[in-house]
Design a protein around this nucleic acid. Structure first.
Lengths: 118, 118, 118, 118
DNA sequence: GTGGTCTAGACCACC
DNA sequence: GTGGTCTAGACCACG
């Protein structure tokens, strides 16, 4: 099972699915053109209401990760053009962390050292 | 106004207040022993339901940031003992970011460089 | 009633609502900061299921037209930054029309004349 | 391949085929009297359900673009009488665009200039 | 079979 | 009261 739900996770189910599929695509496990599980089949597999899957897929389509064709299924898009935006998002989050660290008296060096040792 | 609410922020209001007061204490703007605004006065000032302020204060008290003396008000605790935990929290978040960055093909070096140039 | 549904319209209801509110904001009838009708009240007014309204609002929020705050309501955002994108969309559609016209032997001049006489 | 299907296109497949054949006829690539590929052969060529092709051809026949002779196949009609209607359709769409542009503050001049520079 | 829309009804956290 | 999520069940067009 490539996609799993963690019911203890505070994030809504549909968001977990969105994140999981985004990750699978970013990591190249799902490749452009690959078919994504059908709404109903994934709903069955995860024991979840089809509407919830539909919501996730709808979000993924709007964000450009997949494209859905009525009567045929859902397919992975080429996401190479989305990566720069993703990178910027990560850098923005990193910036927030550094500022937060600074508030509690942690120097940049300490953070850099921590990253280096991971 | 030391404390402000951003209604666009997706975090609940009480959580924004908790975070803001924690920050003010961490930065030393509010010092141990200082009085914290009363529930009612802060509620008035921010045009917010007193229940919301009460919820924030309860959380702050539970987490050890403030202590309340019934009939007297709320006061800032000495938070020096809480800092190590905070530091660990920040490092954990940092770890998440690094992993997320790795997923989209960003190397540690790129992140370290970004921090250094901030 | 600023918002109305045309059940003969082929577009789904939620899309009609999205388009209508976008228009009201673009025309300045709804101004930045204005409150948008609550999900439930609009659902009642239009005799439509709240989920459908929710879907419309969710789309509007994702597109940057409104922001919603749980427990408070939905509010109009400042959309000035969205207009350039909208303009480009219109020009793209216009381009398609011109090409289509060209296919059936209509010259640009004919189209320009038509616009001028509107 | 004169006829191709874009599965990313939100229009149903049969509608894409209708549009494509109409275009080929309007552009004179398919001339009055020319034979149209048989339902089965086109279905094979496009790897598509014959029912879908049949639906497209029915539509084309209804609209007067082609005529079918049972046992012989389908043939292109003379469409000169359909062109005025097509022109009006294009003008109607153009009108919609101009109105939409007006909503977001674009003047006719801007549109006319854009067309002129295409 | 597929995706997409809609309804009805429920529950939650927040205010 | 508010927005947000989820379920259950239905209907539709398309293939």
């Amino acid at each position: 099972m490539l996609i799993e739900i963690d019911f203890r996770d505070k994030r809504p189910i549909y968001e977990q699915i969105v994140g999981r599929i985004e990750n699978l695509m970013i990591q190249g496990i799902i490749k452009p053109g690959d078919t994504i599980p059908s709404v109903r089949s994934l709903a069955m597999e995860l024991s979840i209401n089809p509407n919830t899957i539909q919501k996730a897929y709808s979000r993924l389509e709007k964000d450009g990760y997949i494209y859905s064709v009525s009567g045929r299924g859902s397919f992975a898009s080429n996401i190479s053009s989305l990566l720069p935006g993703k990178k910027q998002e990560v850098l923005d989050k990193l910036k927030d962390i550094v500022l937060e660290a600074s508030d509690i008296g942690m120097e940049k060096d300490e953070l850099i050292k921590y990253i280096g040792e991971m």
